[in-house]
């Protein structure tokens, strides 16, 4: 039976982890490679790096991080943040990323998704959608949540599936950072609309939220950051909890 996945996400800036595990015995808390290794050894089903490097001159730092991580971690590695072109995707894959997540560029030019999924295969193309509820519809935001495109997020998700995306990473901007749980409505509406797997993101504060994301949100995978970073829960604990709730996980 296929297992639901738990994906810890690390924010990386200028090649260093800015939000990550805060264990006392960690030699270098800012080293993304060391943190990713802790997660993969701890049972993470995949690792996600979100590059939040702001300046262009430091953009190349992520490539080094990916190269080093892929030599140490033998679970799938997804990298996103600032991916603009087919060439950017190519570079990340060549450095050892298994999947690349594309956000703003997918909205600005969906041909990037068509071209890259043809060239590299849908299996490595993840479209990341940041959505916020405005009135009665969820709208797609770009540029790290700064720009509202007024595009209907559910329609857009379908369009991305048709363009060749292999997976969708859906983040609720209303919930991100709140720790009050995923936006279940948003997740289940998109998941029912598309036939590709959905990764839920944004708002996890406790282990029940992960259960809800899968059971109610119909997500194939759940992504979380802070509940794992600050030692609140380990990935293993999360899996045991999901297992106790009847959700199939890899233990």
């Amino acid at each position: 039976m296929l297992k639901n996945r738990i994906i810890p996400c690390l924010d990386v800036k200028n090649g260093r982890v800015v939000k990550g595990i805060n264990f006392v015995d960690l030699k270098d808390a800012g080293d993304p490679v060391e943190q990713a290794k802790i997660y993969s050894d701890g049972g993470a089903d995949e690792i996600c790096f979100l590059d939040i490097t702001a300046s262009n001159e430091n953009r190349d730092t992520i490539y080094e991080v990916v190269k080093k991580t892929s030599k140490k971690c033998f679970v799938p590695l997804t990298v996103g943040g600032g991916v603009r072109s087919v060439e950017d995707i190519n570079k990340l894959l060549n450095c050892g990323a298994d999947k690349v997540s594309i956000n703003t560029a997918a909205v600005q030019n969906f041909k990037v998704i068509i071209e890259s999924s043809k060239k590299f295969g849908s299996q490595c193309i993840v479209v990341a959608i940041d959505a916020k509820l405005n009135g009665d519809q969820w709208e797609v935001y770009t540029h790290g949540g700064r720009n509202n495109t007024n595009i209907d997020a559910i329609e857009f998700a379908k369009k991305m599936e048709d363009s060749g995306a292999g997976e969708l990473l859906i983040t609720s901007m209303d919930r991100d950072g709140t720790q009050i749980g995923y936006d279940i409505d948003l997740m289940s509406k998109i998941s029912s609309k598309v036939n590709i797997p959905l990764i839920a993101s944004g708002g996890v504060g406790n282990l029940d939220h992960l259960v809800d994301g899968i059971k109610l949100g119909k997500a194939s995978a759940v992504l979380a950051a802070s509940i794992f970073h600050y030692g609140k829960h380990s990935v293993q604990e999360a899996k045991e909890y999901l297992d106790s709730k009847g959700i199939p996980v890899r233990i």
Partner: peptide, 16 residues
């Protein structure tokens, strides 16, 4: 066979 949309494709993830 995705059984009329009952199963997501691709088959992605860990399986026994």
């Amino acid at each position: 066979d995705n059984k009329n949309g009952k199963y997501k494709l691709p088959h992605i993830g860990w399986n026994e």
